[in-house]
Structures are given as structure tokens and as C-alpha cells.
Design a binder for these strands. Structure first.
Length: 283
DNA sequence: ATGGGGGCCTGCCGGC
DNA sequence: TGCCGGCAGGCCCCCA
């Protein structure tokens, strides 16, 4: 569920509350999410200070004064909410423990950071900070779409000779890290490329045109605080609002927004995921 | 080697 | 009102 813009929004929300702040206690309310938590996770977190909060693809990385890094993934339904009013603001507190509050970090500034994940496809792990990039979950990730190594030449080369539909290729985290179902649909709409088109049947020039559009869509979504469908929230509980700007995602049956296009947005299933697109102007 | 489908979980929504 | 099927922002794993 949370794609790069949602994860970046969560990271940005946590930053002023957690950076330079001690974790005084960690409540670990179950033994696992998608996988078992690392051994003695609560003890290894307790008494450490968060020295930096980074993001790699859809992972949040919290560097700790202990020399370890906490890796967090939100899966499909993971949420992180701040409570306890650590910044002295007015946002609503939610002191009661709610269903699916699996991990709670208590902070030295009085704040609490709660990880809630109904479907439990999320994950947490601890690894030495100097080995974080080599963690098995991160090792084979492709370039960051908003970073310098992601560019036209890279994408043209990375997609060369692939027979998979472009939709699947852009969802492949080894090729580009951070896109998910929503933003791939929106990117393909803006570039006029059908999600069904085989990657090796797209001219280099059109592949290259994906690069600035990917950057634009992600940047706009980050600026909007991400997209809130059912359960995603920013860390202060506010909704993101990029969902109002979707042009195709979840708009099956609606008229295409391209000027003068008479198309109707279609939904097709590709490798188990819904693709939304306009059959008229996406070719 | 690569691509497609199944599976992991819970919750929600629409239809009957 | 209640039940059931389908679907959901991700990603690992196995099979062809």
C-alpha cells in the first residue's frame, strides 16, 4: 500500500519527533509481523538514541546510537502514528491501545510512536548500520527514482530486451525502487503508454520520457502528503491528498481526462494486480 | 533466466 | 441485517 511518497511522508513526519531523541522503552506486542522480529528487539532498542532517519525505497531506516539500524517496512496496511504530543502541538492524542498496535516506541521527549498494521505484511529488523545497505531486503533494490543514478540512459538500458509488460517492469523493485501499483498507473497515463505494452516494443525515446514523469508524479505526491485510500495516514493522523489527483487509478468507467479524448478508463488484471488505463490515449 | 501465479493476513464494500 | 465473494498501496517464493 504505502509506496515511496507515503513512506517519505512518514519519514518526514517522524524526523522532528525522533531525531536526536532517546527510545526509553519499546513495547513489542507480538513476536512477528511478516517475519519474526529480531532477537531481543525491545532490549536492543531501549536506551538508544535515534541519530538519523533515512529512507531507501519503501523502507524507513532509523540509525541508532548503538551502531545498529532499525529497518521498517509498512507492507500493505502499515501505519505509524505519533502521540503523546512531543512537539507541544494540538493534534489529537490517542492514548488507548488499538487493535493491531504491534510495536510502540516510547521516547525521551514524551512522544510515542506506534506501528499499527492490520494485515501484518510489514516488517522490522535490526542490522549493523555499516551493513544496512547489504541487508537482504535492500541488497537487490534498483536506483532511487528521485536520485542521480536514475536517468534516461539507465532506464533505456535496464528495460532493453525485456518481454514483460511495462507495468510489471516498473513494479520490479530491482529495476526502479519505490514505485507501486498506483503511481505506475498514473505514470503510464501521463506518458500515454499502455500498461499492456511489452517493454521491448516501446521506442527508446518513449522509455526515456518516463523518467521525468516518474520524478514529477512522485514529487507531486510527496508534496501532497501521499495518497490516502483506506488506511494510510500521515504520522499526525492527517490524510494525504494526492488521491484527489489520480487520473486513472480506481477510476474504472469514468471518462478519460485527456482533453478531447472520448475514452473510458478500463481496469485489467496483470499478474494479479489491477491496472487502470485509457485504451484510447494509452498505446 | 525471467515471468507469472500463489500465498501471506485482515478489513471493507457491494450484492443478494 | 447477514453472509459471501472480491478486492486492497507489497513482496517472497516456487514453478514452468
Amino acid at each position: 500500500m504505502p509506496e515511496l511518497p507515503e513512506v517519505e511522508t512518514v519519514r518526514a513526519g517522524l524526523l522532528p519527533v525522533m531525531e536526536g531523541v532517546e527510545i526509553t522503552r519499546a513495547d513489542v506486542n507480538r513476536p512477528d509481523l511478516r517475519w519474526p522480529f529480531p532477537d531481543r528487539m525491545a532490549e536492543r532498542l531501549t536506551g538508544t538514541t535515534v541519530t538519523a532517519l533515512r529512507r531507501r525505497s519503501k523502507y524507513i531506516l532509523a540509525d541508532l546510537s548503538s551502531g545498529e539500524t532499525l529497518i521498517i517496512h509498512l507492507g500493505m496496511s502499515g501505519r505509524i502514528l505519533i502521540s503523546g504530543d512531543p512537539l507541544g502541538q494540538f493534534h489529537q492524542d490517542h492514548p488507548e491501545r488499538e487493535k493491531h498496535d504491534h510495536v510502540v516506541f516510547h521516547l525521551g521527549n514524551g512522544g510515542r510512536v506506534t506501528f499499527n498494521d492490520p494485515r501484518r505484511f510489514g516488517a522490522m529488523d535490526l542490522i549493523a548500520t555499516d551493513k544496512a545497505e547489504t541487508h537482504e531486503l535492500l541488497a537487490s533494490l534498483g536506483p532511487e527514482p528521485l536520485g542521480n543514478t536514475f536517468n534516461e540512459a539507465y532506464l533505456v538500458d535496464a528495460l532493453k530486451g525485456r518481454r514483460t509488460p511495462i507495468k510489471s517492469a516498473l513494479l520490479d523493485q530491482r529495476i526502479i525502487a519505490g514505485l507501486g501499483n498506483i503511481y505506475v498507473c498514473e505514470v503510464l497515463f501521463r506518458t500515454g503508454i499502455s500498461p499492456l505494452r511489452k517493454t521491448d516494443q516501446i521506442a527508446d525515446k518513449r522509455v526515456a520520457a518516463l523518467v521525468p514523469v516518474i520524478r514529477d508524479v512522485l514529487s507531486e505526491a510527496i508534496a501532497a502528503g501521499g495518497s490516502s485510500l483506506k488506511d494510510y495516514r500521515q504520522t499526525d493522523g492527517e490524510l494525504g491528498y494526492f488521491q484527489h489527483r489520480f487520473q486513472v487509478y480506481d477510476r474504472e468507467g469514468e471518462p478519460c481526462q485527456t482533453p478531447d479524448c472520448k475514452g473510458i478508463i478500463s481496469r485489467v488484471t496483470q499478474s494479479g494486480r489491477s491496472s487502470f488505463y485509457c485504451p484510447q490515449c494509452q498505446r
